[in-house]
Amino acid sequence: MDRGGRFVLTLSAKKSKSRKPKADRFASANRIAAGAEDGSFVLPRPARRLVRFIVSLCTGKVELPRHIGKASLAAYVLAVGGYGVVHGGYWPQFSETMTSSAGFAVDNVKLAGNVHISEIDVLQSLGLDGATSLVSLDVDDARRRVASLPWVASVDIRKVYPRTILLNIKERKPFGIWQHGSDLSLIEENGNIIAPLRDNKFASLPLFVGRDADTDAKDVMAEFAAFPQVAARVKAYVRVSSRRWDLYLDNGVTVKLPEDDVGDALKRLVRMETEQQLLERDIAAVDLRLADRMTVELTPDALARRNAAVAARTKAMAKLEKET
């Protein structure tokens, strides 16, 4: 009690243990990292740095940033999720969904150069479904799919961000119609088939019939380039035994061409047509296979009339001889 009548309580604090100086702590860490001086195992230099860092972290010298735990957890979740998406094969769908949702969904396809190809066929070949992402669209794969369409010779595809695809198509050119059996197909100049013939839109094209007629069509048309007056009347070029051609004209006359020297045979035909209007006569066929002669086959009606005329003439000659 003090002089004022108050009680005074004196507390004596217990002397705390003194902490080791920093120099001693670093010395301890160095001894742990480097090993004892009596020849014990010594860690490599990189491992020593790691041990020093761990010791400093445990003793509180190194302070971790705030929210490091939350950030570490988020990074772990993202890493595990990303690994699952990639390893499970879901990355293409995931990236397409994300980029489409971000405003890169394809909603405009512009075509150029298409005449016989419909836009619907092109869109179906691209496989667009309204959610296709322009970012994840594989241009090479899209080009291959469009090029597989029957009429496409080549195609150029470009992306125009954020939502447009430009397609410039070069179509194959029809050269003629090839009949093989009962099937009719459109062919190119080199004989490649473009597509089956579905309508009469190409009825004005020349018709080639028979085996190998498709591959030989270009050569025979080159022969007829110098004889347009004959080519204009041909309705069908028929390949015979893969060696020569028969021509079926618009008036039903058949012209049999030789295996070789087709140009010379056509010259003779043009000369006979010019001088005697041979093809306007009542004939069924003209045989030009022999170079030194031309054989003409009459129609059945013309043959009957000719036989009747010959019989009447023979009868008249016999009567005349009898009277004399």
Results as ranks from 00 to 15, higher is better:
residue 6 R to W: 10
residue 10 T to R: 15
residue 10 T to E: 14
residue 12 S to V: 14
residue 13 A to E: 13
residue 13 A to M: 10
residue 15 K to H: 11
residue 15 K to G: 06
residue 17 K to Q: 11
residue 17 K to C: 03
residue 17 K to V: 10
residue 18 S to D: 07
residue 19 R to I: 05
residue 21 P to V: 08
residue 21 P to Y: 04
residue 21 P to D: 09
residue 23 A to C: 01
residue 25 R to N: 12
residue 25 R to T: 08
residue 28 S to R: 11
residue 37 E to M: 10
residue 39 G to T: 03
residue 39 G to Q: 04
residue 41 F to E: 13
residue 43 L to W: 11
residue 44 P to Y: 01
residue 45 R to T: 06
residue 47 A to H: 10
residue 54 I to D: 08
residue 55 V to A: 13
residue 57 L to G: 03
residue 57 L to P: 01
residue 62 V to F: 13
residue 64 L to F: 14
residue 66 R to C: 00
residue 68 I to R: 02
residue 68 I to Y: 15
residue 69 G to W: 02
residue 69 G to C: 00
residue 70 K to P: 00
residue 71 A to H: 09
residue 72 S to Y: 00
residue 72 S to W: 07
residue 73 L to P: 01
residue 77 V to R: 05
residue 78 L to P: 00
residue 80 V to W: 06
residue 82 G to S: 13
residue 85 V to Q: 06
residue 86 V to C: 08
residue 86 V to D: 05
residue 88 G to D: 08
residue 95 S to F: 05
residue 96 E to T: 15
residue 98 M to P: 00
residue 101 S to E: 15
residue 102 A to D: 08
residue 105 A to I: 00
residue 107 D to E: 07
residue 109 V to W: 09
residue 110 K to L: 14
residue 110 K to A: 14
residue 111 L to D: 01
residue 113 G to Q: 08
residue 115 V to K: 15
residue 116 H to E: 11
residue 118 S to H: 07
residue 118 S to E: 03
residue 120 I to G: 09
residue 124 Q to E: 14
residue 124 Q to V: 06
residue 125 S to F: 01
residue 125 S to M: 10
residue 126 L to G: 01
residue 130 G to A: 12
residue 131 A to N: 14
residue 134 L to D: 01
residue 135 V to Q: 13
residue 139 V to G: 01
residue 142 A to F: 02
residue 146 V to K: 05
residue 148 S to E: 12
residue 152 V to A: 05
residue 154 S to R: 10
residue 158 R to F: 13
residue 158 R to T: 14
residue 159 K to I: 03
residue 160 V to K: 14
residue 160 V to H: 13
residue 168 N to S: 10
residue 169 I to P: 02
residue 171 E to A: 04
residue 173 K to R: 13
residue 176 G to K: 02
residue 177 I to T: 01
residue 178 W to S: 04
residue 178 W to L: 05
residue 179 Q to R: 15
residue 182 S to C: 00
residue 186 L to E: 00
residue 195 A to P: 06
residue 198 R to L: 12
residue 199 D to L: 06
residue 200 N to C: 03
residue 200 N to T: 13
residue 200 N to I: 07
residue 202 F to D: 05
residue 203 A to P: 00
residue 206 P to A: 04
residue 218 K to Y: 05
residue 219 D to V: 02
residue 223 E to V: 11
residue 227 F to L: 14
residue 228 P to N: 15
residue 229 Q to H: 08
residue 230 V to Q: 06
residue 234 V to S: 04
residue 235 K to L: 12
residue 235 K to D: 03
residue 236 A to N: 02
residue 236 A to F: 00
residue 237 Y to A: 01
residue 238 V to A: 10
residue 243 R to N: 10
residue 248 Y to R: 12
residue 250 D to S: 11
residue 252 G to K: 02
residue 256 K to L: 15
residue 260 D to P: 00
residue 263 G to C: 04
residue 266 L to N: 02
residue 273 E to I: 04
residue 278 L to E: 09
residue 282 D to Y: 04
residue 283 I to W: 07
residue 287 D to Q: 11
residue 287 D to M: 10
residue 287 D to W: 08
residue 288 L to P: 03
residue 288 L to K: 07
residue 293 R to T: 06
residue 300 P to E: 05
residue 303 L to T: 04
residue 303 L to R: 12
residue 303 L to S: 13
residue 309 A to T: 08
residue 309 A to Q: 12
residue 312 A to F: 09
residue 315 K to S: 14
residue 316 A to Q: 14
residue 320 L to P: 00
residue 324 T to M: 11
